[in-house]
Amino acid sequence: MPQPLDHETDRLAPVPSIPNGKLIGYARVSTKGQLLGRQILALEAAGCERIYADKKSGKNAEREELSNALDYLREGDTLIVPSLDRLGRSIQDLIAIVTGLRKRGIGFTSLHEALDTTTPGGRLVFHVFAALAEFIRELIVQGTNEGLDAARARGARLGRPPAMTDEQIQHARDLLTRPKNTVASIARLLGVSRNTIYKYVPELKGGRVALTEETVTAALPGPTPAAE
């Protein structure tokens, strides 16, 4: 039975364990007006055999050349970037990419930060980043939950606002008592869908006659109190 790779059993094991693969570079600028020259020169100086480059914002999920670079990499290779902000849209995105490389036995190096996951110090720094990102995420989740609990305690209404106000519902009921008004026309008038009308005026499901009878009954005056 083949033994598991070192990087699967030891978080600080060297990846790749034997760095005999290719050095692949990735560069990115945010706009077409920016130049890639300085980044490419730095990657060439680092010994990259092949360089991929995108001209897109880091917030853009569709980074074709990054996808091509990740597809090209093989176990034993190392991905090199000029700086961390050229690779990830956020620290969570960065950690996800580098963790994926590690699982594939691929190294990662960022020139500006001198971060190299093929060295013990670089791997340690990366895991500190990962732990910090998880800590921040948990703080955000905790703060969000505490805020929701406080809002509920104040009686605040949570979630999406209702599709129809009480005034609109009453207006819809009044209009529906007139036979010439269709549900579709009333929905258009109120700026909602037919399904919304049926949802907020459930008695309409019993038919227009039932709705009219209920509306009329509700409008009738109550019994006159007996004279003393």
Score class of each variant (00 low, 15 high):
Cys48Thr: 02
Leu66Thr: 06
Tyr52Met: 03
Thr118Phe: 02
Gly207Arg: 14
Lys180Leu: 07
Ala130Lys: 06
Glu44Trp: 03
Gly107Glu: 06
Ala45Gln: 09
Lys199Cys: 12
Val141Phe: 14
Arg11Ile: 12
Ser90Thr: 15
Ala153Phe: 06
Arg152Glu: 00
Asp77Asn: 09
Ala96Leu: 04
Ser30Arg: 00
Ile40Val: 15
Ile24Lys: 01
Val209Met: 12
Arg123Lys: 10
Ala150His: 05
Arg157Ala: 14
Ala130Tyr: 05
Arg173Thr: 12
Pro16Val: 01
Asp116Glu: 06
Ser30Gln: 05
Thr9Asn: 11
Gln170Trp: 09
Asn68His: 15
Arg123Phe: 07
Arg194Thr: 15
Gly206Thr: 14
Gly37Thr: 10
Ile80Leu: 08
Gly107Val: 06
Ser83Lys: 11
His127Met: 08
Arg152Trp: 01
Ser185Lys: 10
Glu214Thr: 13
Arg28Val: 11
Ala13Pro: 02
Arg102Val: 03
Leu87Met: 13
Gly76Thr: 04
Ala27Glu: 11
Glu113Thr: 12
Val183Trp: 06
Ile197Cys: 05
Arg63Thr: 11
Thr118Ser: 12
Ala227Val: 07
Arg102Pro: 04
Gly159Asp: 04
Leu124Gln: 09
Asp149Ser: 11
Thr109Trp: 00
Gly206Ala: 15
Gln170Val: 11
Ile24Arg: 02
Leu23Pro: 00
Glu62Met: 06
Glu62Pro: 00
Arg152Pro: 02
Ile24Cys: 09
Ser67Leu: 13
Arg102Thr: 09
Tyr52Ile: 01
Gln168Trp: 01
Ser110Cys: 03
Ala219Val: 05
Leu73Arg: 01
Gly100Asp: 14
Val29Ile: 12
Thr182Cys: 05
Arg86Glu: 13
Gly21Arg: 08
Leu189Asp: 11
Val201Cys: 08
Phe126Asp: 02
Ala96Phe: 13
Ile80Trp: 04
Gln168Asn: 06
Tyr72Asn: 02
Pro202Trp: 13
Gly207Cys: 12
Gln170Lys: 13
Ala210Gln: 07
Tyr200Phe: 15
Ile186Tyr: 03
Ser67Lys: 14
Gly105Ser: 07
Thr224Ile: 12
Arg123Gly: 13
Gly143Trp: 00
